[in-house]
Amino acid sequence: MIDRSLPPLLSVRGLEKHFPLGQGMLGRAVRHVKAVDGVDFAIWRGETLGLVGESGCGKSTTGRAVLRLLEPTAGEVHYDGMDVRALDRESLRAFRRRAQFVFQDPFGSLNPRLSVGAMLEEVLEVHGLGGANRRDRAVELLELVGLRPEHIDRYPHEFSGGQRQRLGVARALSVEPEFLVLDEPVSALDVSVQAQVVNLLEDLQAELGLTYLFIAHDLALVEHVSDRVAVMYLGRIVEIADAANLYREPRHPYTRALLSAVPRPDPVGREQRERIVLQGDVPSAVDPPMGCPFHPRCPHPAKDDVCGSVRPLLEGDPGGHLAACHYQPSGVETST
């Protein structure tokens, strides 16, 4: 099981990813979109960390920056003791055998011109895996994700959305990784198919001992799959805790608003349900508000000038429930 006394498999500190916006006179970008603006978290072997937030909060960019699909602007990423940002080309290739990515779009994430067999065999070939008979290994991978051997000669357009997502998982697993970044892996799928793919991911985790960074905007789903959950807002983590704690006792006002906004599939008592409806929209990440990024929309009664000038740090129970709010409730029960 998950042993948090060991050093974490992945630890991220002060991660930043800024995208240049337009060009200045001398070819240097004058303004930046601060998509990820100082993110800290750690993932221990065998666990699932859920990363939630609304569109544009930087969750997907964080996932890509961790695997260096995007080069981070600043910060540290350590994977099993290794400095990911310092890897040269050869060691980066080796790292990518250990850490893989599953994409959101089941239609865009597969090369339409390659048959399933060609796609999987290419990966095996590049990494010198699968031995003499790569086709047999490809069939094994298909069976691992619940597809049939005869699917091997088909092309992506001949599969349904759920099946394509299984293919994306099979491709990621073909290099036998231990860590997967799952970027909205089921949000493009129908509800009934979502459940199939989520169950598959959970089975694979148990079977192969995988560690997941599960990025999604569906809060109920993240609660279901995650051991711990981090909530992002405007490029920063505003709260991180065990899933049960975070959903039962949210400490950050944003988390509370987010949770209360989720429509519940149960009409009983809907009129009485307390709902915090936030006003306005998320501010631009080009020019995020000073201090706490959430303060312009924050409904917290204690909100004051400090919120608008001092950036709150993630704090709370050490190693347990952390929130980035100056006025988080203190003395709530600690994590198990």
Binding site: L258, A261, V262, V282
Partner: peptide, 11 residues
């Protein structure tokens, strides 16, 4: 739309 915006629109 995002959940918080969805809540606004439904309201």
């Amino acid at each position: 739309l995002d959940v918080t915006v969805q809540a606004q629109i439904l309201e």
